[in-house]
Computed example of a mutant assay.
Amino acid sequence: MASLPWLDPEYLWFPPADEALDDPDGLLALGGDLSPERLILAYRSGIFPWYSDDQPILWWSPDPRCVLFPDEIHVSRSLRRTLNQRRFRVTFDRQFGRIIRLCGSTRPEGTWITDEMVAAYTELHRRGVAHSIEVWTPRGELAGGMYGVAIGRCFFGESMFSLQTNASKVLMVHLANQLRLWGYRVMDCQVESSHLLTMGARSIPRTEFLSILSAGVDEVPAQTDWRLRWTWTGTEV
């Protein structure tokens, strides 16, 4: 591995995202901390943390970058039937702590969502920067969820889980619809997955992603209090 900069926890700084390695794709720096100020600077700069318990903090900015533009969400015929059946209810910021922990514990392959990460993003949530999206059944059972970070008119999806068929797809459609209504430019999905691609996500060059961020992170969205919106998903989505 090429030499990478070690970040000093006392010094709030990142190298430019375009200095990230090609192999492994996007690895930019090591060390530092997960303070709210550093995390916010990272997201504003197109960088995110991703590491395991036995590693130092690793900071990434892959190229290309997987994103979903809210007005490009794809709703298949079968998914539209599910939406019309109103089988799920979607809420925002109701159970952030539960959602972030389930994002980690529901992955059979293991997780990067360590206790340190949970504490860091919970503090971001307390400051109104990190948000959760919850999907519920009519009986009030949790069916799926996601957490992420909102800065300006950019939303950075971090992790998602599904406990029932189609719950994560309903979540994505509803979230994209709300982001569009609130004037968000983009939802960052970080890296490609088949699930995201079928929902309308696509990969763009890192330079294009950074250009979107430079324009969007200082803009004010139409909605800043996520808790104001919750509804049964249906034909209105």
Rank of each mutant, 00 (worst) to 15 (best):
L163G: 03
V173D: 11
V170F: 07
V170Q: 03
L175K: 13
P138H: 05
N177H: 15
V186A: 12
M146V: 06
L171F: 10
E123D: 13
K169D: 08
R153T: 01
F155C: 02
I151C: 04
Q178F: 01
H174F: 01
Y147T: 00
V149R: 05
W136G: 01
L124P: 08
F156T: 06
G152Y: 08
V129L: 08
Q178V: 07
Y121S: 10
F155M: 10
G128Y: 05
R126I: 03
L181V: 06
Q164C: 06
F161Q: 07
Y184W: 14
S159M: 09
I151F: 03
M146R: 09
L163A: 04
R126A: 15
V149G: 15
G144H: 02
G144T: 09
H131Y: 11
G183W: 04
L175C: 02
S168C: 15
V173A: 15
G148T: 08
Y184P: 12
S159V: 11
Y184R: 14
V129G: 10
R127K: 14
N177Y: 12
Y121H: 14
L181F: 12
R139P: 06
R185V: 02
L175V: 08
H125K: 00
F156W: 07
H125Y: 11
R180G: 01
F161D: 08
R127H: 15
A176K: 07
E123S: 03
L181Y: 10
F155S: 05
V129W: 13
K169M: 14
V173P: 11
M146Y: 08
P138D: 04
R180N: 10
W182Y: 14
T165A: 13
G128D: 05
E141H: 12
S132K: 00
P138M: 04
V135T: 00
G148W: 14
G183M: 09
N166I: 08
W182D: 12
L142I: 00
G152L: 06
H125A: 08
A167G: 03
L181N: 11
V149F: 03
S168N: 13
G152D: 06
L181H: 12
L171Y: 01
G144I: 04
R127S: 03
R139A: 02
H174I: 08
